[in-house]
Design a protein around this nucleic acid. Structure first.
Length: 255
DNA sequence: ATGGTAGAGGATCTA
């Protein structure tokens, strides 16, 4: 079973790349973030034509998440329960006996901003929900753009980013609390190439200089971590013409 | 310190 995540930064623009990616990798599940479109504009037919099902929750201009899958998902949830939020940032479905939760964690802008405060309110709400989900679904995967680099290995220049948004201690503590629920960062289950990142700013030729950060993650419950065969980042997709600023990340689980 | 790019939507806001 292959589970993947990709912040596409506009599904409208990236649709041809998404369809190509589905055909090349044949993932069982692909979680998308920043689809940036309203539900009535979701390219349902185009995705269906590739043999994939879709669930999605979108809004105008910003945010929006979706899960594309080979089989129909059930028990779909499109918001964090008991958390007031006009921004569409989570969607979950169950595929076979695997619970898949797709998240787009707020970016936070900078640590002085109201957006950062929102991020630090949002993460405990996610935590509470995931804790509840884990009791129901021992086989659980949380995939998405977390907008948090877990540690200095995940940052091209840690001294520049020390204490800044995406790297600050409160954010890293919030991520650690998610892991403390009984989740593992699948990427670190394996030996990995140094300087592997999932996001590179469009500006300053950041990709060409590999000035990136690993902020997109596949977290696995212990039951899924046990059967995880690999966890990788598809850097090639970031090299395409008109790319998203994020690369897909994916895991392979044994059946 | 600033600005560099991309996307949405039609001036800025977000990242």
């Amino acid at each position: 079973m292959i589970l993947a995540t990709w912040n596409v930064n506009s599904l409208k623009v990236r649709l041809p790349q998404v369809i190509n990616w589905l055909q090349e990798y044949q993932p069982d599940v692909l979680c998308l973030q920043e689809i940036k479109l309203q539900d009535e504009n979701f390219p349902l037919k185009e995705i269906e034509a590739t043999g994939y099902q879709s669930i999605f929750v979108g809004q105008k201009t910003y945010n929006g998440v979706a899960i594309l899958s080979k089989t129909q998902g059930c028990d779909i949830v499109t918001a964090i329960p008991c958390f007031e939020d006009v921004q569409k940032r989570v969607i979950a479905g169950t595929y076979g006996d695997v619970r898949v939760i797709c998240v787009y964690v707020p970016n936070g802008d900078n640590i002085e901003s109201e957006k950062y405060a929102y991020k630090l309110r949002w993460l405990p709400a996610l935590n509470e929900w995931l804790q509840d989900e884990l009791t129901k679904y021992p086989k659980m995967a949380v995939l998405g753009d977390f907008n948090i680099a877990p540690d200095d290995r995940d940052v091209y220049d840690p001294s520049v980013w020390e204490g800044k948004v995406l790297c600050s201690q409160p954010e890293r503590d919030a991520l650690d609390k998610l892991l403390a629920l009984g989740l593992v960062d699948s990427f670190r289950l394996f030996e990995q190439p140094e300087k592997t990142y999932t996001w590179w700013d469009y500006r300053m030729m950041a990709f060409r200089r590999n000035r990136g950060m690993r902020i997109d993650h596949v977290l696995l419950s212990n039951e899924l971590a046990k059967i995880c065969k690999s966890s990788q980042v598809d850097k090639e997709t970031r090299k395409l013409e008109r790319p998203s600023d994020h690369a897909p990340a994916w895991v392979e689980l044994s059946d």
